[in-house]
Simulated scan of single mutants.
Amino acid sequence: MAGLEGVEQPRQRMGATAAKWAPTVEDERALKAVELFGNPAEEVVRLPSRPESAATARRLAQSVAQRQWMLPLQCSENVVLLVSELVGNAVRHTGARIFGLRMRRPRPCWVRVEVQDPSRGLPCLMPVQPLDVSGRGLFLVDKLSDRWGVDLLPRGKTTWFELRVAER
């Protein structure tokens, strides 16, 4: 590198967290998440209530939506985004140590995603202003899903959304 002697160059770090994004890398991470935590399309997957669990939940949702159910790209991206929003709410607002993630196909043209937590506090859809930097989670769920809601349980609740899936 002629002419750059004495100028500090940025270091290239190679590691799991610094790896560049690529579809194949994300695919591998999604498969690894299913291997480690289970398949939310087959059973309720229990995850620790920590911020990094949102990434795990996204990977699980991606694996089910794209590989198992082979949903159209836009639909699978919406599923992944909305899973992230519901998980983020469960982690931030419930005080839970663990939450559950479940994905189902109740009917051929529908996807249902459920996030269970031990809190009976109800989520609240707040008005969103253009410059708001937070509080958009349920707004996105409301706008992108066909329907959503909360089922109270004897100990806790299930917050869910459903998306209609176009036939291929």
Rank of each mutant, 00 (worst) to 15 (best):
E85A: 04
Q68I: 15
L140G: 03
G137H: 00
S49R: 01
P108D: 11
G149P: 03
S76A: 15
L73V: 14
A54K: 12
L86V: 09
P51I: 04
P118Y: 00
I98L: 09
A55H: 08
G100W: 04
M14N: 04
P51T: 07
P10R: 10
A54P: 01
A33P: 05
S119E: 02
P10L: 11
A96D: 13
L140Q: 10
E43M: 12
V111S: 02
W69D: 08
K32C: 02
T94F: 04
E26N: 12
R136M: 13
L131W: 12
D142N: 15
L140F: 11
P23G: 02
A55L: 13
P72N: 09
L73G: 11
L82W: 06
G137F: 00
A61L: 11
M70L: 13
A18E: 09
F37K: 09
A33M: 12
D117K: 05
R97Y: 02
P108S: 14
C75N: 11
P51Q: 10
P48V: 05
R11F: 02
T56C: 10
V45A: 07
S134K: 07
S145D: 08
A61M: 11
A61V: 10
G38E: 10
P130N: 06
R107Q: 14
W148H: 14
E35P: 05
S84H: 08
R11D: 04
R50N: 01
G135F: 07
C75R: 15
L81H: 12
D132E: 06
R136V: 08
P23Y: 03
T24S: 11
R97F: 03
V25P: 01
T24H: 06
A41R: 13
V44M: 14
L47W: 01
R102P: 02
L122T: 06
S119I: 00
A18R: 03
L122V: 07
G95Y: 01
L144S: 02
A96P: 07
V111C: 12
R46L: 14
R46E: 15
I98M: 12
D132R: 11
R104W: 05
T24V: 08
P72W: 07
R67P: 03
T56N: 04
F37W: 15
E114T: 09
L60S: 05
P48R: 12
V128I: 14
G38D: 10
G149W: 01
A90Q: 05
V83F: 10
R13Q: 00
C124S: 12
M70T: 15
V44T: 15
R11P: 01
S49Q: 03
K143M: 10
E42Y: 06
R13W: 00
P123S: 09
R97T: 11
K143T: 07
A57E: 06
